[in-house]
Design a protein around this nucleic acid. Sequence first.
DNA 1: GATGGTGCTCTTTTT
DNA 2: GAGCACCATC
Length: 757
Amino acid sequence: MASANRLNPEQHQAAYCFDAPVCILAGAGTGKTKTITERIAALIQEEHVAPASILALTFTNKAAAEMRERVEHILGYQPRGLEIGTFHARVARWCRQFPEAIGRSSYFTIIDETDRNRLLKDLVKKRQVPAGLAFADIKHDIHMWQCAGLHPDDLVSHPILANQTFARTIYTDFIHALDRSNTTDFGHLLLLGQRLLATPQAALFKARIQHVVVDEYQDTSPAQTAILNQFFSHAKTIAIVGDDDQAIYGWRGAAPDTMKRFLQQHPSARLVKLETNYRSSSQILDAANDVIQVNTNRLGKSLLSNHGDGPSLQFFVADDDVHEARLLADRIHTLINQGTSSDDIAILYRKNAMSRPLETALRRARVGYQIIGGIRFFDKAIIKNILATLRLLLNPHSAIDLSRFLKAFPHGIGQKTLGQIVPTIDGDLISGFRALTSDSHPDLSPRMLKKVITFGHRLEELRRPLIEQTASLAELIQELLTRLGLLSQLELDVDRQTEREDVQDFLQLIHQYEYDCERQNTSPTLISFLEEAALLSSTDTATDATHISLMTIHAAKGLEFEHVFVIGCEEHQFPTSQAIEDAEGGDTSTLEEERRLMYVAMTRAKRHLTLSRAKRRQHHGTFRHHMPSRFLRDILVYAERQPSQTFGSSRHSLIRRRTGDRPMGRRGQSIHSPIEIEDDVDTSMFVSGDRVTHTTFGAGEVVGLRGLGSRRAALVRFDSTPTRSRTVVLAHLEPEKSSNASSVHEPQIDMSFDFGA
DNA sequence: GATGGTGCTCTTTTT
DNA sequence: GAGCACCATC
């Protein structure tokens, strides 16, 4: 039992609890992955359980891969049939086994968020939208129903608000459209899984699963819980792992009390708390606890550091977002020069848009970085077009993919004709390009009809080699892209360098996929490749040791770094405006989630945690001023209650850019020398309202800023043509001499958070 | 039907 | 700062 020796007593108790369901409350950095991998290995090795009877569900593919690897490492061999994966990936696999049980045929496809929204929008357009109802609200309602595991049929008996009836209609249309086009989206996939597990076809397979392990249980939605319950009812052992303080997916339907409810549903369950933190210094944990302790209704646990003291936390205050990015880039540049490895450094932010100034600053400082999440490779337009083409050829019923295909590769058939041949609502069983070859289109002119039919036959021709798999996948796809003319088009166009590279990367990826399949003794089919592409999460990218990592806090969940920088610690950014407004209206749940998010961010750090804020930040082209985040205050107020600690060794030292007028006054405090900023030519030079002069158009006023390809531009209303604004390149603009416009935007209130001065 | 310019609106977070 | 709808033009 060598493996068990590596566990501490609590971890051991959690891993080896086989006689009752166990709820493992695992704080950040307490070795929960280790505990569950040991558990899985122990089931196989010591309890002699068949690997195929174990189902382990994780939140990301990356977590699943890591878990599988670690289990294999402990066992020393690859267990056969072990079901490890994300909810979505497992469910998709099961559905693929019994497609007809859920009203699908083989080769059903999974559409992504963008395509789903496009479909929803189309459906909304076909109906009479009630006045005052925004698309966002409809989308939100449907999303929430899907998370709750509710099918449109369930809504008949389910209480809904009066203003939700239209959304319900659209939801019904939406499900019909998915059924008809043999597709599904992320949300519906889980409902299909739920339905599948209730069918006789799945009974055998369902009974096979006898041991269930669920990671990140605090973030499971009711739709996911419903699937779990199908196994919980007969499973011999159950282990759920999670941390209610790290529940950050409420907007995806996860209730913050999910863990608590598991305990209520399983009265015999044992609660095991893992509270020894092996990751962070006590300074970091203390500060993180200061933030999280404000929340009410926690299951309650207190993390104790096993690492002891570390350096103090650091704070930066920057003038604006660009300045903040530069300060960080400088600091990181220095760290790396001093020998810190790049993969020990991460910058975390609340939302993706915050990465832009960072990217500029890091490039300038010659610091290699990679963005985890953000725009995925598979989200790039050119790749999406190729994927849509492949999906369409595989699944001729997919109207969504047909529409995208025709936009990407014009065949003289536009959206109008498409609308006439592809019925998206009501009745018709034919859709997608199968609709093309059917000859009953009374609305079309004979000329158009001929065009459409020819086109349909062409697609059938393109389709055949893919279905019959006459050559390797990579060859087939290369051939297809050649026949569509895409490759020659890209060759000819100088401006499409990036796209050319992306397509090459894509083909390379297919090669890689075929190679991987070969190694794992599975056959590389197009459908399995597409599925992997669809379900690959944005955070699954492999990390690279020569680059620092940039990501949202959500994407950082489960990761750890020696140095963590959390930027944008400002009211209305973090916490978000929405959370602040909700709280003012009496609903503190979103604010509590923001607080947990800060807790997650802070506990990613092992030894060095730096928090920064900018006094003003560019929003949609204009600057907005922000007060320091209340979370900063929660940390610092607490620090002040500890007067015995001198600053140099205290938990909270301070680095602040000297503004020249007021160096901070505390004894022993370190103040960095002033940091020079050179002026940059970018949009932050101008803000809306600035008076400018253009080399040809003369004087005018900036009304907006925008990007124009790789160049930056401003939207200017010129005095000579006051009725319309013009987009002009920044290089042609100069601030009008007398202008004082930007100083008008100075803050009315700036607490200039003096951190205990 | 395709294309290109223009001016709105807007996202937190993602499987 | 991007995506989108809308319009004018070819």
